[in-house]
Design a protein around this nucleic acid. Structure first.
Lengths: 228, 228
DNA sequence: CCAAAATTAGGTCACTTGTCCAAGTGCGCC
DNA sequence: GGCGCACTTGGACAAGTGACCTAATTTTGG
């Protein structure tokens, strides 16, 4: 299994302008990301970004009309990079669907142990709670991530209806994200991530394989005690 | 299954002082929590907290030496409340260990759909990445939360060694937390939380029941391809 | 009633924040 | 080679930040 590394940023080239301008643009976002990852969203001030990128404060305003626009571009660049990586993973050839699901789980969980991922996403989740555009962009990302899971589940368990596949994909995706705070970079259980991967692979594959059509709703329909 | 609600704050009464002082203290923390939940950590300024609690800025300084101390007290009060709730859940009588595990999962996942929980924890996770005391206090909370899981797993699968139980408890706990961003309060999939609960209960119980001693490490020891 | 506790009102302090602007510099293209 | 636009500079600005202070006032509980 190749080490899969998600690039920090994916920037769509601007039309017009010199190459230097493109570099400056990217350099600013890279510095901003570095600050966010290493010192949190509170450190995301124009002056600190400027200092980090060896630039003048006013120059940031040349590239971005406002701080808000800078943040949007930053989040979009980081998230776009993840999306592109997920799309690549999908088309990776593999053996059985189950093996490919295991590979996908492994890749995602290994990425979680990355400093960037461990630090960036909790900030993203927190921002999403109070900035609608962050909320929306974040959900676009995860929707894209679930596509791969959904397809693999369909291959493993063709009888499962689409909406139940979606719920299962959601559960699997959410499950993995939740390990960030515990086994991510420099977290207390980071050394145990390989073991968590074992459990995750085993559990998710088993779910995909054994979930019966209608089982979810049928189980849910039993409310309080059993009826006689 | 009774609706289990975690109180907003758990404050250890201060020694000395009038009852009013106790109220003021609590009122301030309550206002701060409200700001954190409704507007994020960026809104946690002394002036906004004062305005929210209908108090004077100077009065905050009477109760708390510094903003930092206020934040610490706030986090501690909120976290302590969760800890107390978990301890209560443990001692709740129930039928089989499996049924109690299912109940515990249900309680935690339902709590996640709460506005306070959905909004508070991502802030906590983000803070934990850059403030060591938050990191430590947060891990104390989750350690406590895993105690219940650990005991139940031990009851369900007595053959499982302690360290493997811990990993499994960690996986289960982390799995549930990860659903916050997707099926929490006002999240896109909040209506589907009941279905996620079904999957979670089924999956976690199955794991606890079927995990063989040494299985985790044995599975991990197979590195790349199989040996001939 | 009275001392302690709680609260108010106001202000000052040095500092940081995002935004904006006028004047420069220097690179790329004709 | 020099023109012009892309890029860069440094500073000004009002608003907000946490911390700290004094003095007066109200509330509380024994």
């Amino acid at each position: 299994m190749a080490n899969f590394i998600v690039p920090d940023l994916k920037i769509t080239p601007r039309s017009g302008g010199y190459a230097r301008g493109q570099d400056g643009f990217e350099h600013i976002l890279r510095s901003a990301l570095s600050l966010l990852v290493n010192h949190g969203s509170a450190a995301l001030t124009l002056r600190r970004i400027a200092a980090e990128s060896g630039m003048n404060v006013g120059n940031l305003n040349y590239y971005f009309r406002s701080k808000d626009e800078l943040i949007r571009e930053l989040l979009d660049a980081v998230i776009s990079s993840y999306e592109e990586s997920f799309d690549e993973i999908i088309h990776e050839p593999g053996a059985s669907a189950e093996a490919r699901l295991e590979n996908l789980v492994t890749l995602i969980l290994e990425d979680i142990t990355t400093k960037k991922t461990t630090r960036f996403f909790p900030e993203l989740w927190a921002m999403a709670n109070h900035a609608p555009f962050v909320h929306d962009r974040m959900n676009e990302l995860y929707e894209r991530a679930r596509v791969s899971l959904n397809e693999l589940i369909a291959e493993i368990n063709p009888a499962l209806p689409g909406d139940e596949r979606e719920i299962l994909a959601l559960f699997i995706s959410g499950s993995m994200e939740g390990l960030t705070m515990f086994a991510g970079y420099e977290k207390p259980w980071c050394r145990q991530m390989p073991m968590l991967e074992v459990i995750a692979r085993r559990s998710f594959v088993h779910l995909a394989r054994t979930l019966r059509p209608g089982e979810i709703k049928r189980t849910m329909d039993i409310p309080a005690p059993a009826r006689d």
